[in-house]
């Protein structure tokens, strides 16, 4: 056994030991009630459903371009802002209170369209010139796009945190078997899953979706079949952008605020979800997003409380990033992914 693999096994062992010890400790301490655990899980699924939606954009763009669209989190932010500018007047005029369905439809549509259009524009302006360029240039360009979007929104709308409208119906809670279920969580999860199901059907059943899968596998062969690869790439950005826009609106609703930098953290987390599920894999991105959300929400109390950490919830980002790093080290192809090397074989 080489020194490297010995070290890796030690890390594996330590992580597993930590998780097991923490879990046992937490169970022994019995600090949390069932209702609290339920709350952790539900919130994990809620935030996870948003990570999953954003992760889809990373994974699909990676599929067709082999590019990490680092600006994707910021594209989500654009959608959240668009939703904000529609939601605020709707709320102020009282429309959103009286017509929640119509109001939400308009807000989501605004988020979807704006994010979709901005995603397509970034492709056209920033990524297309790099399509045949090898190496790191396209990735660095993606960083540039990310900064550009953030600073543009900061310049246009200020760097203050704006509070998102909170219509009264949003505070509805369901009660069930002694547990209270926030209505927003249910709304977000159900709609996110519905939108993802639609996206999945588009990818699996439509002509464009099939072309997208073909391009992901072998762009040149797809071109030889008569596929306009450029069009497929635009379609991919539009689809991923729209999905991120929806997620942006939900994210803002959940945390009740928008600001220019809000896309960064969920963007990184969603990227982590995409890597976790196996970048390039559509079901993988959904699975990875949910998994990351759950671990981040349940993990702190479950693993960290038991080993005596004072404020475990403050460490949830640490857990999320640790999980990402562990995946990169031990299973770079992710849960559902295949080895990059094999792909071309």
């Amino acid at each position: 056994m080489s020194a490297v693999s010995l070290a890796l096994w030690t890390v594996r062992f330590l992580v597993v030991a930590l998780v097991v010890a923490g879990t046992i400790g937490t169970i022994l301490k019995d600090r949390y009630t069932t209702a609290q655990w339920f709350e952790f899980v539900l919130f994990g699924l809620t935030i996870g459903s948003l990570y999953a939606q954003v992760a889809l954009g990373y994974t699909m763009v990676y599929g067709v371009l082999r590019l990490i669209n680092f600006a994707h989190g910021d594209i989500m932010m654009c959608g959240a802002f668009a939703g904000y500018f529609v939601a605020t007047p709707l709320e102020n005029s009282g429309f959103l209170e009286v017509h929640p369905v119509l109001g939400m439809t308009a807000i989501l549509a605004a988020g979807m369209v704006v994010s979709g259009v901005i995603a397509v524009l970034t492709e056209r302006i920033a990524y297309r010139p790099f399509r045949r360029v090898q190496g790191f240039a396209p990735l660095i360009c993606a960083f540039g796009v990310s900064f550009f979007l953030e600073q543009t929104f900061r310049g246009l709308f200020g760097s203050s945190v704006k509070s998102y409208p909170a219509p009264k119906w949003e505070g509805v809670e369901f009660h069930w078997a002694g547990l209270s279920v926030p209505g927003v969580d249910v709304l977000v999860i159900v709609l996110a899953v519905a939108f993802m199901a639609v996206l999945y059907l588009i990818v699996q059943k439509t002509r464009m979706g099939m072309a997208m899968r073909a391009v992901s596998e072998d762009g040149e062969a797809a071109a030889l079949m008569g596929v306009d690869v450029g069009k497929v790439i635009v379609f991919t950005f539009a689809l991923g952008g729209a999905m991120a826009g929806i997620a942006g609106v939900f994210y803002a609703f959940l945390f009740k605020q928008v600001y220019f930098y809000m896309g960064f953290t969920p963007g990184i987390k969603a990227f982590g979800g995409a890597v976790l599920g196996g970048i390039g894999s559509v079901p993988g991105a959904m699975l990875g997003g949910f998994f990351l959300g759950l671990v981040e929400s349940v993990g702190p109390s479950l693993f960290l409380d038991g080993i005596g950490i004072k404020a475990p919830y403050e460490l949830r980002d640490v857990i999320a990033y640790t999980l990402m790093i562990l995946v990169l080290v031990f299973r770079p192809q992710g849960i559902l992914g295949e080895h990059m090397a094999k792909k071309r074989a």
């Binding site: 002509r207 073909a214 030889l224 079949m225 008569g226 596929v227």
Partner: peptide
Amino acid sequence: VQVPEGRRIFGRLTVEENLAMGAFT
């Protein structure tokens, strides 16, 4: 239409989908 070297079929698509890709235009 070209049948490229090494076949280059879409390995993750079904046979049916590969045929459908052929008729893409």
